[in-house]
Nucleic acid binder design. Sequence first.
DNA 1: TAAGGCTTGGTAACCGATTACTAGGAGGTG
DNA 2: CACCTCCTAGTAATCGGTTACCAAGCCTTA
Lengths: 353, 353
Amino acid sequence: MSGPAKRVTIRDVAKHAGVSVATVSRTLAGDYPVQPATRHKVLQAVGELDYVRNAHARALSVAAPGAVAIVINSVATAYYSYIAQGVEEQATAEGRLCLICTTGGDPRRELAVVQMMREQRAEAVILVGSVIQDDDYKRRMTRYAHSLAASGSCLALCGRPPLGDGVPAFTVGFDNTGGAHAITTHLLSAGHRRILYLGLRPGQSTSDSRVAGYRTALADFGAVYDPELEVGCGYDRSSGYAAMKHRLAAGAGDFTRDFTAVFAATDVIAAGAFQAIREHGLRIPDDISIVGYDDTPPAEDIGLTTVHLPHAELGRAAVRLALSGKNPLVEAPITLGTHIVVRNSVKRVGSVR
Amino acid sequence: MSGPAKRVTIRDVAKHAGVSVATVSRTLAGDYPVQPATRHKVLQAVGELDYVRNAHARALSVAAPGAVAIVINSVATAYYSYIAQGVEEQATAEGRLCLICTTGGDPRRELAVVQMMREQRAEAVILVGSVIQDDDYKRRMTRYAHSLAASGSCLALCGRPPLGDGVPAFTVGFDNTGGAHAITTHLLSAGHRRILYLGLRPGQSTSDSRVAGYRTALADFGAVYDPELEVGCGYDRSSGYAAMKHRLAAGAGDFTRDFTAVFAATDVIAAGAFQAIREHGLRIPDDISIVGYDDTPPAEDIGLTTVHLPHAELGRAAVRLALSGKNPLVEAPITLGTHIVVRNSVKRVGSVR
DNA sequence: TAAGGCTTGGTAACCGATTACTAGGAGGTG
DNA sequence: CACCTCCTAGTAATCGGTTACCAAGCCTTA
């Protein structure tokens, strides 16, 4: 209708209402006594002019609450999106704006994003997702932590390993070792002794913790540890499918199948493995038992026994911690507990009672 | 280490480098000739002081590119999170910051969010997700559209019905009617005549379009339309389960089952229905055929034939359009096509050749 | 009635960057 | 040598709020 949208400023409102800018500002802030009549004039002018405060100008003059930034591989993955949901909820609950950036796992984008967040004066930057934990990674994170701290921001790692002492970053993660230990024990108690671990990825933090839990559970139970039973596999459905297919094909005929159960590192891998197992003519859980990890969508639908992770709580905890004002240098990493969800993918084997 | 984080300003850099603020600003902008020696001094000072530009101050003085805001029910739902991913990708590709807000479907939060986005001077606000399309809704959206337009922002509706002429908002959606028509026809061609539609929700935009496609497909095929075959059902797994369970229980024994196939309004509903059907002792697709809609995670895992939606492309298209500078008043709604993904949940019935 | 307190509102100096305008210095030419 | 041009760098105004400081008005009280 009208031509180019004109910006209405607080000075316009003041003029329109016949008062000073200070009065307008104070009326809107509501923290200063203003005569009802004056207040009314101001609010009326605001309404008539459709005045909206400029958040940038505001941020410049007062120490407005900073935004929370979530930096994540992708939001189109259940595991990540659940955590993102928790982050967003908590950020909103604490009255913060929530910025979101996906990196696709690219370190260059990650760096650019961290830099951008410093410019935005974000109060907290939440880095989500497991990673290859090499020296380059640690150096990168350490640099981010220091530079964010230098500009008054605060770094929180979500589902990633701690960076160690002297690095100003909070860490919140799942008890992956504990969860893996529990679900492995669940299989062991059901009589399984040879359990295939599907999803080995040396160096990848999440994978490493889960494998560790698997191994100690075997040891604690007095079962034999066989490296042959740990197979590498990408963290997606098709990798799980391919890896399982390959393993089943390796020993043609059932004689040579050297495992009775499968522990898939994630539910998504398990879903792929499910399909491969079915296509191989085997039934779950009658012929093979299988468990997953994460309790993400496919699990319920395919009846998978798995480890439930409090994803949203992880996100919320990270935000709470990052905004708590606590000193990241002295705060210990937080580990969130997990629990097993029993469905219908495990069957007891061997000598029953 | 050092006490409270001190903000380094451009003046500090200028002083440190022994030049003026203008020179620093121009060196960093890179759009103005600066002597190599001077440039070097400036960059060195920037490095030593770890200077970071203040995005708020910058936004205040120049018309910096505005952010893209995505307003969504929840990110922990595959359908939404896929769209969000597309929005984020495109926003980043166009050099914009991406803000995210979840509303949980609460109109009050929605209003607060839109107001906040005006304050943030967001350049585009993308509202995602289907809604109950009543008068209140239309009034609300119309108000948002106008107020955002008044502050120079731009509203885009994603997967929602258009608001009509005279309202400055872009609309991008899926061809739900076409997709529903296609998948219904798929069932009809397989010999099914009595198809249960699971997920009726009068007034809900997405549901309405899908039902419409279902009905016209029946009509086009010359099949009988029976309102009894359209059953209401929430858009979550447990509702699908409950509704199917109830329907199957209604006619005890197979004699009275008055349908041979099920068209679930979403894959999630289908997943619930799957379970109910199985628990009732029926096999899919041998005893009952079933199709879904959306092509979200459970679909692949349970072998569901469904309608694939280009979720991410929807998000990208919305952002592209909103940032295109086109006039939302004259731009026609965009509708994205869909296609059927055939898996293993439909079986031919009736007289076979 | 004058002095002092309390309330309310205005003026102007910030926040931190950008940039129009201006000025000084180097180099070229008559 | 004087003058002009070109290049580079500095000064100060500006973006749109907030708020410290100040002043005017009203009411109370001696």
